[in-house]
Design a protein around this nucleic acid. Structure first.
Lengths: 194, 194
DNA sequence: GTCTATAGGGTGATAGAC
DNA sequence: GTCTATCACCCTATAGAC
């Protein structure tokens, strides 16, 4: 046989992830991707019906990657208080985005497509649960959205190069502080935020 | 004369802004832009040396547009307290992004290029001054970065369709609340944030 | 399962006529 | 100042050989 099996769907996704991170989203073409795998572009159609399907799978896998990274950081500190866990989550989020800036940007700039995303749901749930365990409020959805907004906003602006060389780390701590307040302070307000 | 002057640099930018908002950034090609102006693509090179120069000018003008919108909203309430002004600024920011989602995304996803951006500086200064007048802290840079992070993050996630139909407006108020706290509360902490 | 060949489209940019 | 014509490149996707 002149052409034995050389690649797999997972290998395609792994190579796509590498290509995306090293060359940017515009360089994520089927030709370039195939070339990186030592194969020709049409071969990829054996594993994905078209490019958008490949992209969707890439987003799903990238989201799962992010989730696993955050979960791993939390599992590394089993004795931590809920507040420490929340701070760790925030740090891990920032760290992931800094380590894989183009992947992070790629993940966030696309809506979760038509179908629903298991990895996206896991991610959101991790954030929500970690926050709720800190605040002690059962379904603290709005606060979780606010926290996510801050985290994403900080990360996105930093990755886009909007922060000068003025220390943005101060700002990260400052913006995070209200979410890290002791839970008692939040509940004593009786419904009023902060 | 078979070919009298038909367009100007400003008209090109205005048409580009329309095209960007209505068709998205991928549709912003020189051919499509020229077609929209009733002209051929090569004519555009008489006003901009290349596409990237046109994009840079578009970003600059779009940023100025955003700045003017925010400034106008603030000038409309000359009697307002600093806190009211800050809240108005946040609302106007959110409103601009919702009204011109693709322009906003386009503006934010690009670094300010090589040179510096007067409009970008005006924008940042307006945010910084409005916040500082509220907190009473002279150079509250870090807090301004944190506020910008939250505003941009909320807007970006909303525009990317990451918020379900669960009320994101609550989250906006909740995330904004720490920044709107009475100034006395901020200063009484003696350096400690919040 | 991978290949070659190709269809059919897009893009930015330039030369030179008028 | 705008045009036509064109270069040189990129892309996704399919047909059909092996």
């Amino acid at each position: 046989m002149p052409h034995p099996r050389q690649i797999s769907a997972d290998q395609v996704l792994a190579a796509a992830l590498e290509l995306l991170e090293s060359e940017g989203p515009d360089a994520l073409s089927l030709r370039a991707l195939a070339a990186r795998m030592g194969v020709r572009a049409p071969s990829l159609y054996h594993y994905f019906p078209d490019k958008s399907a490949l992209e969707a799978a890439l987003i799903e896998q990238g989201s799962a990657f992010l989730f696993e990274e955050l979960a791993a950081q939390l599992q590394a500190i089993p004795e931590a208080t809920p507040t420490q866990r929340l701070r760790t989550l925030a740090s891990a989020y920032l760290n992931f985005a800094r380590t894989r800036p183009r992947l992070y940007t790629f993940l966030m700039q696309q809506a979760p497509g038509s179908g629903y995303s298991p990895a996206g749901k896991q991610l959101w749930n991790l954030l929500l649960v970690t926050l709720c365990e800190h605040t002690g409020i059962p379904d603290d959805t709005s606060r979780a959205v606010a926290l996510w907004s801050f985290l994403h906003g900080f990360v996105a602006l930093e990755l886009a190069g909007r922060f000068g060389n003025s220390g943005p780390l101060d700002a990260f701590e400052l913006g995070l502080a209200p979410f890290l307040q002791p839970a008692s302070h939040l509940r004593s307000k009786g419904g009023l935020p902060f």
